[in-house]
Structures are given as C-alpha cells and as structure tokens.
Amino acid sequence: MPRGRLEWRIAELIQVKDETPTARTLLFDVPGWPGHLAGQHVDVRLTADDGYSTQRSYSLSAPDRVELTVQKVADGEVSPYLTEVLETGDKLELRGPVGGWFVWRPTGKAPVTLIAGGSGIVPLMAMIRARREAGGATPFKLIYSARAPDERYYAPELRRPEPGVDVTYLYTRAVPEGWTRPPGRITVADVNSGAWPAEFEPDCFVCGPTGFVEAVADMLVALGHDPRRIKTERFGPTGG
C-alpha cells in the first residue's frame, strides 16, 4: 500500500460512549482520513502548553470510522486524559493508519480465530465489524478473556446473536452467577474448545498484554497451528 509519508492530522472528538467504568469509546472526525483496514492502529499525540509532548498507539475499533476504545491506566500519562478530560469538540493530533501485518481483510477465505485478553478485544472487534459490514460468510470464533463480566467492552453488541460468529467468554477474577468455569487465566483447554482446530487452517489473531499473547501463541503452536498463521499484537504491561 504505497502512500505518502505519514503526517499528523487534527482530530476532533465528536462522540463518547462509556464501555466499562474505566474505558470509553471515542469517535473522531479527521478531515482527509484515507480509510483503514481492520486491525490497524493510530498514534495519538498530546502536547502540553509548555511544549512537552507524548504519544501512544491505539487500535482502531471499527473499520469504517476513526474510533478508539481507551482503557484508563491509573498512573498513565495519556489514557487518563483521553478517558476523563477530553470532551466532544476538543481536538488532538493523530496519525495513521499504521500497521499492515496484524490486519484482516474481508476477502480472506480461511476461518478466523480471534483471541483477546482485556482491551486486546479492540482490533479484533474491528475485524468482526468488518466481516459484518462486508456481509462476509467467513466463520469466526472469538475467545474473549476479561477480568470480570462488567469489564467486557462492546457487551450488548457481542451479545446479539450473529450467524457465523461464535463467542466464548473467559473470566480471570470474577464470574457471573452459575458460571461453571472457575475464574482463572486462559488454558490450553480453553483454546482447544473455543478456537478452530488446527486442521481447519484458520488465521489466528491474538491481542492482549505481552504475557497473555505469548502464552496463547505457545498454546496455539502446541495445538498444531502453523506459526505463520498466528498473528499477534502485544501492547505491553501498561499502555499508559
């Protein structure tokens, strides 16, 4: 995808939606935005009055609009501003889209396994939405590991039945009443039952904190998946 050199653009916040008590979805208007693929991300830059500037990367959560979901990191430098201070009409600097590897195209024919840890759901949700938007028939399976039921993003949307999209939830700290699986980190048994088997040759996308992603990628390889079909995105311990 040749294009010009990447430049910072001015983005105006036009809509805000709370996802959880500590995360919110931000919709921006970015004049001249060239469009993007599901899984791509943007860099956001904030500059203080004294000229100090800092930037972070955030995944785009939808294929057809510049929308991010940001988790507040308590001691973070950028996320508290984006989740608590920024209001509609405010502007910030943003550049993108970037990243051409961790992407899913609606022309993809292989079945798709998506495995999310916490806010790692964001780029995977963009893939589910891209599939829906394209009227695609590619079968998807999503395994979504969250700390507790009220920490799930996009909960009403994922609750709606969608033919060809199979969703499995895992909880690491607290579970809903009557839930049979005790709270705990993802295991190879969870991956084995929630993901497409290796012989279907699915494309696997794994996104989450570094430790989660490494553990899941190792499980997929142990289950016989071709490492070249496993795409990962680690966002590190804090994100900020």
Binding site: H41, D43, V98, T210, V213, R234, G236
Partner: peptide, 9 residues
Amino acid sequence: HVDGNALAG
C-alpha cells in the same frame, strides 16, 4: 517488551 507493530508509526 511490546512487538514490532509498535514500529509501524
């Protein structure tokens, strides 16, 4: 660490 996706920008 994070991964090479962070080099994209």
